[in-house]
Amino acid sequence: MLIVRTVERWLRPILLLVSVYLLSGGHQSPGGGFVGGLVAAVPFALHALVYNAPSARRLLRTDPHFLMALGLFCAMWSGFTGVFLGAPYLTGKWVEWELPLLGHVDMGTPVIFDIGVYFAVMGVTLMIILSLAEEE
């Protein structure tokens, strides 16, 4: 049990980092908001397994349905950028930046949409897992 608990603590940040990596790589290579969101839900699910569901909720600091709402909100508003520029809803718009540390960065509405998917999937997965874990 001690080993599991220790490993769980060390895995948490790594898993979150992996999920962000998957999310950020999503547009040009395999990955994306869906997988990223699933991976992001893993540390909390693992915590619920090792300890219990209320403890995982405390670790999350917010309710899964707020995450879902946040995700849906991002996804919905990413569609409006195109509209403000005179194109139909959900049209993809891109800008390119040269940032000091990161170098060449593509930023666009599909990325914001993907971030929305990330949070929505994370919220849904956690909602299912935590409510099932609380059933006992």
């Binding site: 349905h65 709402a69 849906l72 909100f73 919905m76």
Partner: peptide
Amino acid sequence: LVFPLLIPLSTAILCMLTW
């Protein structure tokens, strides 16, 4: 044409935020 979808969606989102 998008509004009939967006209005219920944003209402749902707002209702979730004010859970």
